[in-house]
Amino acid sequence: MRNITIGQYYPADSILHRLDPRVKFLGTLVFIISLFLIKGVAGYVFVTIVLATLVRLSKVPFGMMLKGMKAIIFILIITVIFNMLFTPGEAIFTIWRLTVTREGVAQAFRMAIRLSYLIIGSSIMTLTTTPNQLTDAMENLFSPLKVLKVPVHEISMMMSIALRFIPILMEETDKIMKAQIARGADFESGNLIKRVTNMIPLLVPLFVSAFQRANDLAMAMEARCYHGGEGRTQMKPLRYEKRDYVAYALMLAFAAASVCFCVFGGGWI
């Protein structure tokens, strides 16, 4: 239960681990945007090569990234089916009233690749960056918003706490569920309404415990002199190194290439 991938840092010593989290955050954004820009076989081959290189550079086992895919497999299948069936174009074959078109297959293929690359790309970021670094990066990048009275520091602190407690609460859910099953609770059968009411013995204790934890944690933070972002120093302040500038340059080149593939790409896919 404590092995979920989202927000789960994989400790290793790689160039990607050492990069400034801001670079990785912006890099991931650029990558995602470019996924939706590129066209043509060459374009897809290009991003595949880039992604494969990043996977290698991260020194994180590829299996860890595929774990993240499990969560979206359902969405992936639905997307593929919808695209195959509902894209108008040249029919390949028809079953009953459903027609699979050549364009549909191509579109489905594109969407599947985009979605899975998106997940792999962002899990490279979360696996090589500690949640704290990530929230630091976001706090730093969004700090101009402070002028608009957006509580940037508070939001990033909340995110980092949430990331720490997700695995704990998952484990707790598992434990309470087992305890209630031992008392004869049934979480599996019945219609929808029955199933929802059956969840009460699970949800109430979970909320009670979450509030208790929140209370404890607030007290612990206060006891350790936490009083907001003011006057706070940082253990790991963000400082760009030479490698980060190089990474930005590469990112720019990648973005330019993606735009080229967008404009000049095409072909049958």
Partner: peptide
């Protein structure tokens, strides 16, 4: 409660 007083997601942090 050891779980409810650790804020960092990495020990040193």
């Amino acid at each position: 409660n050891p779980d409810n007083q650790i804020i960092g997601t990495v020990v040193e942090e």
